[in-house]
Amino acid sequence: MDIVIAAKNLTLAYGDKNIVKNVSLAVGPRTVTALIGPSGCGKSTLLRTFNRMNDFVPSFRLVSGEINYRDLNVYSEKVDPVYIRRRVGMVFQKPNPFPSSIAKNITWGPSINGFTGDYDQLVESSLRRAALWDEVKDKLNSSGLALSGGQQQRLCIARAIAMDPDVILMDEPCSALDPASTARIEDLMTDLRDRYTILIVTHNMQQAARVSENTAFMFQGEMVEYSNTKQIFNAPKQRLTEDYIMGRFG
């Protein structure tokens, strides 16, 4: 199998405290992979190493192991984190559009990264792919903050798509949204998978089951089980996985 992004024997820490312990995970192209596990088990910490967003946390340390994106060692000193983030986009838990127009939200990233194509077309295609075009096509110059929470999150997805990334990381992208908006974003993920490799952290078991092909279950910083989503939900190999999925803890 062709691997897009992978963690190899990864141990991560904040200060002296190891948070992610000897985790390995390999993700193939054009798949949706769900990362599940109880709160505080290190899902976000792991996810944020794939595009080096943890660089901004002063106490963060990569203790051992490595992250690979295609043939690059993401944490190697020779690799530019800005390049990694161009290829590996991210959508956050809380929608965080820039306090500027909808169009500007889309074009800003590409413009600082040397995009030379047609901006109007970029805005339209990104918004279409994020299933937001019809709702905002008449107000592209109004503020992104004037949209509803669900629309803002789709704007953030559109913004990530506009960069034409290879991988999109999503950290609980629906946790601040109502059920209708959540359903729209889940549909969207299914559409996006034929083009992007998606990693999604979620606390919602049904969501993981609906949108993902593979699921990784983490517990207290360790990777307990990683396999096909159907298998994880129907016949987990580990007792811990089963307990978690059945809602017996956390």
Partner: peptide, 13 residues
């Protein structure tokens, strides 16, 4: 902080 992160995630320096 979320605004800064949004910028960095779009490969901004």
């Amino acid at each position: 902080r979320t605004l800064r992160e949004g910028g960095f995630a779009l490969a901004a320096t």
